[in-house]
Amino acid sequence: MNGTILADGLSKHFSRHRRAGLLRRWRTTVRAVDGITFRVEPGEMVGYIGPNGAGKSTTVKMLTGILFPSGGTARVAGLDPARQRVALARRIGVVFGQRRQLWWDLPLGTSFELLRHVYRVPEPRFRANLATFVELLELGPFLDTPVRQLSLGQVMRGELTAALLHDPEVVFLDEPTIGLDVESKARALDFLSALNRERGTTVMMTTHDVADLERMCPRMLIIDSGRLIFDGPVADIKRFGVERTLVVDLEAPRPALWVEGVDDVRVDGRRQWLQFRRDQVSAPDLIARVASAAAVVDLTVEETPIEEIIRRIYREGMEGLTA
């Protein structure tokens, strides 16, 4: 197993032609990925996030050998994706959330059989893997159903299986949860976590839904406008969330409790949301002040949702947060 993913100054520039007048054309260069460097160790599970158009898919396409880089180097499982695309294809699994690789008119099970031949998976290995995935993802009831008749969640479970039947060392997932309902999404993500834990498969997953990653990827890479702006544990991102909210349930409805240290208050009947900054006032102090001002029945302290922190990173950059 050598499921390392390496990117060193990886770049992709596209030329775009824009018409200006009848014959003149302007050539503009779009830096979709602009010098990205990171290293993912074998058996790691990383989330790759960023707003739409940040360069997530372009990066994945370069790492899987679909696109040639304009600059820098990539190395996946010890191979150069651009030049050893076919050799690499045997050792990686790729799931595109928006592109089907299953055969639309064939029963799901037949698609898997075809892939066995495409990847030349030894028969016993194939049977064992298929049995495992059928059980974990509960594919049994619709193995004989043509893919076109399956629900989106069922198709995605099939796609996951299709990408993993040949025991890849590295799995890339590009927006795998797009369009899935909560239940299907949870099932797919739990499955990926188990795969990473039990088989040591390296997993790199792009998404714009941060909640997906918070539960399963200890490490996050954030890309914006083609540049890597954060690479670290999810806990480090949470530290940037200095805003907290104290939610109190009072005995009786009261006007807003503007005690010292509170930045903002929202009132709804007997419940109030008091927003404060962790670096200005401590939660116990604030709770003591509130308790002395009103009769409190129940309370909780809420952290800034991670989506909110990341939205602010996109908006203001890392500097805005560390300052």
Binding site: T64, A87, R90, V94, F96, R99, R100, W103, D105, Y119
Partner: peptide, 24 residues
Amino acid sequence: RDGTFDVVLVRPVGSLFQVLAMEF
């Protein structure tokens, strides 16, 4: 146009063969 050719490129078989043989 719809990007499914990318799927062809991440499989370990020649791209022309896949386009010719792998849809029914």
